[in-house]
Amino acid sequence: MKLGRTRLFASDRTVRSFVRQGLWRAIALALLWWILLEGDRKGWWYGLPVIAAATATSLWLAPEAGQFWHPVGLVRFISFFLWQSLRGGIDVALRAIDPRLPLHPQLIEYRLRVPVGPAQIVLMNTISLLPGTLSVALHPMLLQVHVLDGRMDVQRSLQQVEAVVAELFEIAIEQ
């Protein structure tokens, strides 16, 4: 009897966190729907069933609770990303129009400090949009990066990106 009650309590908590997850995802999807319809109110008649179905599918495919990004980390990440990707675009555009074609490509290896999981995926994709670096292969704690100009201090700028991503996921990494 006692055992039964404890088990019931544990599943009760799981149900509650599941419902909370579903609620957050439904809110996010409703916002997405509102944006897609450009604020048109008539679309909600078929939008609501679509949102419900999408929420159910999302809970079915990824039932584990997602992690919220740290707000300060998110602001820092966005500002870092916007500035660096603009620099990356200008850098590669200038190399493309330069008649001498100033490329000194190299394939380098970078030791990762953030753990396997979403942080590594975000880091890998961010690196591909920053000046002169392209993520080629991800191994458990090692990233192979193609660089446009091997003479730049790539290791240092990669460490900078990793620190920004670690802050986003609230992960402590050794400096």
Partner: peptide, 20 residues
């Protein structure tokens, strides 16, 4: 068009087009 191999070309496509 100008970059010499697939790796370098990907740099041009992703970064310049995203800013564009």
């Amino acid at each position: 068009l100008r970059f010499p191999d697939v790796y370098n070309r990907l740099h041009a496509l992703t970064k310049a087009d995203n800013v564009g």
